[in-house]
Design a protein around this nucleic acid. Structure first.
Lengths: 114, 114
DNA sequence: CGTATTTGTTACCTCAAAGTAACTACTTTT
DNA sequence: AAAAGTAGTTACTTTGAGGTAACAAATACG
């Protein structure tokens, strides 16, 4: 953040690429093994197919995932992380850990409210 | 991500709180020292005062920052990180590092394009 | 032949987030 | 009296992200 200014701030750059509402979630789901379009949709049901498509396209464009399409029928398409995005996994894990702490706190506060 | 499902996913919880477009940036700027409203606005010029206000209010509500108002004239208001959000700083630092790598790659790719 | 499956696309609509600009309140300086 | 500086708020408008629903293509199955 000490950097020049707004423009070339690395954090801003990173957020441009992974700042989407669903992208961290998608990347997290791909961390263990490649997943198909339909699997991702099942894992994140609140995410519509249209938006899932667009997020996957953007992630592919930015080279955070690769798309492997198998000429089977019915068609099968798998998405997997690239080396670039594998480095993000521990970051999202930390964030997840922090989120868990948030949930705990929330439960405590709810208790105190009663 | 292995967790139950969508609802209580810790990463989703975390993203609810820090997922805002500007929040990671604001938190990063506060990491070294408390900052005033106007300072933050100068540091992130693309962020309008109205939105800065709303983001600061949300962060305060979620107890990621505290607001200290001094009865001087002209008024002075300082925002500082709480213990809760200080744990986020290393996460954003990693993300920033990753963003720097992105920028480097971009430069290399531009060179290759020529 | 008609239906199901899978991975999308396309068109249309909606709503919340963000932008703009004007106004407030308090006090010091000119 | 008026302007300047700080930290907002309020009202109005705009933008774009996201939702819904229908359709496409290829093949297998009954």
């Amino acid at each position: 953040m000490n950097e020049k200014n707004h423009e070339n701030c690395p954090l801003t750059q990173a957020l441009l690429v992974i700042g989407g509402k669903w992208k961290p979630l998608i990347i997290s789901h791909l961390q263990k093994s490649p997943k198909r379009f339909g699997q991702l949709h099942t894992l994140i049901p609140k995410l519509s197919r249209k938006v899932l498509t667009s997020q996957l396209q953007e992630l592919t464009r930015d080279k955070l995932i690769t798309r492997h399409s198998y000429a089977e029928t019915p068609p099968r398409v798998e998405y997997r992380l690239t080396e670039k995005s594998k480095e993000l996994v521990p970051i999202f894990q930390s964030m997840s850990k922090w989120g868990m702490y948030l949930i705990d706190k929330k439960i405590i506060e709810e208790r105190e409210d009663n």
